[in-house]
Computed example of a mutant assay.
Amino acid sequence: MSRQRQYENLAAGRQGRLWQADRGLAELPPNPFACECGSPGCACTWPGTPDEYDVRRGEGWLTTHPAC
Rank of each mutant, 00 (worst) to 15 (best):
L10H: 07
W61P: 01
H65V: 07
L18W: 06
W19G: 00
G41H: 04
N31D: 08
P32S: 06
C42S: 10
A26Y: 00
G24F: 02
E8Q: 13
G58C: 05
P47T: 09
D22T: 03
W46F: 06
L62T: 01
M1P: 13
E52N: 03
P32V: 03
G38H: 06
A12H: 04
L28V: 01
R14W: 03
G60T: 08
A11S: 10
Q15D: 11
C44K: 11
G48E: 12
R23M: 13
A12T: 08
A26C: 02
Q4T: 13
G60L: 12
R17Y: 08
Q20R: 13
Q15I: 04
Y53A: 13
W19E: 12
C68F: 01
L10M: 14
C68I: 01
Q20K: 11
N9P: 03
Q15H: 06
R57D: 15
T45P: 07
E8H: 06
W19N: 02
L18K: 08
Y7P: 00
A12I: 05
E36P: 03
R17V: 11
G60I: 10
P40G: 08
T64L: 05
E36W: 03
Q20V: 02
R57H: 15
G58L: 06
H65F: 07
C68R: 03
E52G: 10
P47D: 15
C37D: 10
E52W: 04
C68Y: 02
Q15V: 05
E27T: 05
E59P: 00
N31V: 13
P30H: 07
E27P: 00
T63V: 15
C42N: 08
A43C: 13
L18D: 12
G48F: 02
T64R: 06
P47H: 13
T49A: 07
G58A: 09
A34H: 11
R3I: 12
L10C: 09
P50R: 06
S2R: 14
A12Q: 10
L25F: 06
P40V: 12
L25V: 04
G24I: 02
A11G: 05
T49M: 05
D22M: 05
R3E: 15
E8R: 10
G13P: 00
L10T: 10
G24L: 04
S2L: 08
A34Y: 11
F33E: 01
P66A: 14
E8V: 10
S2K: 12
G24V: 02
M1N: 14
R17W: 12
G41F: 04
W61N: 03
C68Q: 06
R3W: 11
D22A: 14
A34R: 14
R17M: 15
R5P: 01
C44N: 15
D54V: 04
R23Y: 06
L25M: 10
Q4F: 12
M1D: 12
C35F: 01
Y53K: 09
A34L: 14
P66G: 05
G48T: 14
T49W: 04
G58T: 04
D51I: 00
R57C: 12
D51T: 09
N31K: 05
L18V: 09
Q6K: 12
P47E: 15
C37N: 08
V55L: 11
T64Y: 00
P32D: 07
